[in-house]
Amino acid sequence: MNKKEHLELYHQMVLIRRVEERGAELYQQGKIGGFMHLYIGQEAVSTGLIAARQSNDRVITAYRDHGVAINCGIPVNEVVAELMGKATGVSHGKGGSMHMADPKKNFWGGHAIVGAHLPIATGMALGDKYGNQNNVTICMFGDGATNIGFFHEALNMSKVWDLPVLWVCENNKYGMGTAVNRASAVSSIAMKARGYDMPNECVEGMDVMKVYEAAQKAIETVRSGKGPFLLEIQTYRFRGHSMGDPERYRKQEEVKKWEESDPIGVYRNYLIENKIASARTLDELDEQSMDEVNKAVEFAEASPEPTMEDLYKDVYVE
């Protein structure tokens, strides 16, 4: 990875952090409604993972999707406008925080029923294999999703048919407020792949470079026609599950301990120590990101609401 690419990854991570922080403020001001799940703490996962894909590889994820959307190349203006329910949002204000997608960027959502997008990912890979495409479907989900039947049906089918799909579990230690060991018979999610004779790996997810390297290997394994692969990525969310989380299930000391390995700080140190970028360059990127988010909020605030015509549009194609 060259300097420019490194700086781009750093930029994306900071941009996600700033969008999420501003999102929380806007939510508290009542300018964002519904459910909103912040990606703060997990930025290295999606950033490293998506940096390793080719443009024809598809990405699909769950409801914690703002960061994934930004990594897939959706302009921050469209992300913030969607949060605020505006017509200029990536889903024209009809999807909201949990339902962002742009198939032109090969980002397939944004799905809010836990685990339900896993069989859909199986089908995308099936459709691509059927159509002789040489691409990979990257399906992201949380640890909580590995306890629902959809996960098992989807993994089984993907292996039975040797489909080009990379399963990526973001293990952030809690499904809402229930710790992994209280909800899953095995705490190792990667171990669940063994039941389907599927190659798997567990990597540390607070270091974007480690995620990137593991993702590259996994994606190439899948692309080479060897069938599906499961990558478990160990991470942690610094904020609550969603905006209305009293966080009774974990201690502040635990959160503080994880914050010491803040993925942005880890990457910043890496870039400076390896003389890839100076502190000053990174500071400038920080400022630039802040500026982009401020402009995105201005754009969203000034954007029109969807019309009454939009209410009835797109129920059907025909």
Binding site: P103, P119, T122, G123
Partner: peptide, 23 residues
């Protein structure tokens, strides 16, 4: 032929349809 897994069947058909097939 599919496994006996109806959510998987319909979910996979949705996915294949999204990427341009007509299942």
């Amino acid at each position: 032929d599919t496994p006996i897994a109806e959510a998987g069947i319909v979910g996979a058909a949705i996915g294949a349809a999204l990427v341009g097939q007509r299942p």
